[in-house]
């Protein structure tokens, strides 16, 4: 899932201050799961922002609405009937969702209410860990399914570097495990260490411009015909 974290309230308020009635849009997908942009967070933000502005002597109204999936125009369209009465939007879905709302309502300002952090997993309740940088050229097959791009602080493809500390920790600090020590150990368990004895050649980076992908089955639909 996409993991996000609510921005500090003063930062959110700074953006919204010039505007009147604001709709806080949550998302029932990823940011609900990571407790940043679901119904409870939207409700709480409405209360907290109203209170914050009240303390500044400003009477502002906030309302909330949670779409099922903020990254899908079919769901964002639900906002059409609500939009007229609001001056601005605060999106607590991920950054992708915020931009889709902005495309839908180009005449209204949309503010991000969260910092979109990474693509990751639930470690435990309320504890998330990055697992994938969406590099577009998955390396997991030869690294024992441990991502060197995400987990190695230097994203190196022929690790480990010389900075590995005692007990297989990264040079960053004694808490961070060295991705390449973990890769070695896992491959050793699977008797596949030869995977990393071969040189990986320089990567053809795939994520250096905005990604666009049309599923093969839909090529015809989106290909312009003369």
């Amino acid at each position: 899932m996409i993991v996000a974290q609510i921005k500090p309230l003063p930062e959110i308020a700074e953006g919204l201050e010039p505007h009147g009635k604001t709709l806080i849009v949550g998302c029932g997908g990823c940011t609900s799961i990571c407790l940043a942009g679901g119904q409870p967070e939207v409700d709480q933000l409405c209360l907290e922002l109203e209170q914050l502005f009240k303390e500044k002597g400003l009477n502002k109204t906030f309302e909330g609405y949670v779409v099922e999936r903020g990254c899908d125009p079919d769901f964002i369209q639900e906002l059409d009937i609500l939009a007229a009465e609001f001056e601005a939007f605060l999106c607590v879905g991920c950054g992708a969702g915020a931009q889709l709302i902005a495309e839908q309502f180009p005449e209204k300002p949309v503010y991000p209410g969260v910092n979109t952090q990474f693509l990751g997993v639930n470690r435990e309740v309320g504890w998330y860990e990055e697992k994938c940088r969406s590099c577009g050229d998955c390396q997991l097959a030869y690294t024992g399914c441990i991502c060197p791009v995400t987990r190695c602080a230097k994203s190196i493809f022929n690790g480990p570097c010389g900075g590995t500390q005692r007990e297989g920790r990264c040079e960053l600090d004694a808490e961070t495990p060295c991705a390449w020590v973990d890769i070695f150990n896992r491959l050793k368990t699977q008797q596949r260490v030869e995977n990393i004895e071969r040189i990986r050649q320089p990567t053809a980076w795939q994520n250096q411009k905005q990604g666009q992908l049309v599923h093969e089955a839909y090529r015809d639909r989106y290909t312009k015909k003369d």
Partner: peptide
């Protein structure tokens, strides 16, 4: 090359690379 970093067993192979 760093012979003094884990995994010690792999370091000669990294040198080989």
């Amino acid at each position: 090359a760093n012979p003094f970093a884990e995994p010690f067993e792999f370091r000669p192979y990294r040198l080989k690379k």
